[in-house]
Design a protein around this nucleic acid. Structure first.
Length: 198
DNA sequence: TATTTGATTCTT
DNA sequence: AGAATCAAATAT
């Protein structure tokens, strides 16, 4: 069955930009997953940027290995890995080929519920390593959509990243972006049925 | 081959 | 504060 997106699918050029910029702009976009012909769309509310070989928190800072290989590739590709033996984390690769970087998707609003945490997110959307290296710009079973929701000014907060204390000075970089709750206009939320873009 | 670690989450 | 649980990285 043919599935048509409710917004425009983010393409390769979107991800072929500075990682922090991509991360910040992904807030308010939608992560769309197809499971057995049905669609689940989660509104992205928290992400983290992992930026290149110098960033000690970035897996790829240790060099090109079998696991990190995908981060060195072109943007718009999924990097999914198993963490702590139990949970999967979903990232989308950014920037040009040869520059290892990605954005970790940490939280979404899914059917009115906050799915908070990369592990829970992947569990809710049935994302595992079978999606590693998948092209997220092709509109197949997982992609990002722009539904032209407007965020109010100052809606996106920047904070230090989580769980990377080992990264020294890099742990302090404000590369986690999170939507401040209630910082979205009622129009953007669609609660007034005014039709998105305004 | 053996040991350690980790972009987490849940329980105690 | 600790367990669950394992692939990948590092040490040997």
């Amino acid at each position: 069955m043919k599935i048509s997106p409710a917004g425009s699918i983010l393409g390769r050029p979107y991800f072929d930009r500075p990682t922090v910029q991509v991360a910040r702009s992904l807030i308010g976009k939608y992560l769309v997953r197809v499971i057995e012909g049905r669609i689940l769309a989660g509104r992205i509310v928290e992400v983290e940027a992992y930026v290149g070989p110098e960033d000690k928190a970035c897996h790829a800072s240790k060099g090109r290995t079998q696991r990190t290989e995908v981060m060195f590739g072109q943007g718009g590709v999924a990097y999914v890995y198993l963490i702590y033996g139990m949970y999967h984390c979903l990232n989308v690769v950014t920037e040009r080929e040869g520059f290892p970087s990605a954005v970790l998707i940490r939280a979404v609003e899914l059917e009115g519920q906050l799915i908070d945490g990369p592990g829970r997110l992947c569990r809710a959307l049935q994302i595992d390593r079978s999606l590693n290296r998948a092209d997220l710009t092709a509109g197949e079973s997982l992609w990002f959509e722009d539904r032209e929701e407007l965020l109010v000014r100052g809606a996106v907060g920047a904070h230090p990243r989580v769980g990377i204390d080992y990264a020294g000075a890099w742990a302090k970089k404000p590369w986690r972006f999170r939507l401040r709750s209630a910082a979205v206009s009622s129009r953007a939320r669609g609660t007034k049925k005014q039709g998105g873009a305004g």
